[in-house]
Amino acid sequence: MKGIVFSEFIEMVEDKFSPEIADQIIQSASGRLKTGGSYTSVGVYDHIELVELVKELSAVSNIPVDDLVTTFGVHLAGRFSVLYPTFFEGVTSTLDFLESVDNHIHIEVKKLYPGAELPEFKTERNGSQLIMEYSSTRPFSSLAKGLIEGSGLYYGETLEVEAEDLSKGLGNHMRFTITRV
């Protein structure tokens, strides 16, 4: 997984909780982290390390893991819009943007990082409703949900996001029904 996800996660924990909490979860999980909790945005790390960090944060904050990951997704979408504005500027609505993820954004990401393992998004548009099916080798459907909600915030639109688990609890296959309200 790209290092930017890790560095942004640590920054979010520092901002939303505190630097002490961030330090605490790294310290607690360090025995299970190959990197020892040192991340650079240009590196590539095992996604398990993020899972470990989120688990620790959940234990410290008493917030469910899924809620934390979704919140992180919202934060990440906001950061992506600052770091990679060109992907957001070409379209004018959340649903249009989400439709472009698989057939435009991911193609460009692949050009930049040929080895990147990206999740797959199949979309089906029906007016103001978009059905988006997420599938990945990693259990981050909650992160996808947060990214969807964060995109809605960027475009100033209110969205209703219904999630249907297609992975029997594994979190790697989910159907989202997104409705613009």
């Binding site: 330090d23 020892g36 040192s38 240009v42």
Partner: peptide
């Protein structure tokens, strides 16, 4: 110190 240490490691890796 811990943060600095992690940042230094990260910088080295970068």
């Amino acid at each position: 110190e811990r943060r600095f240490s992690r940042e230094r490691d990260a910088r080295k890796e970068a």
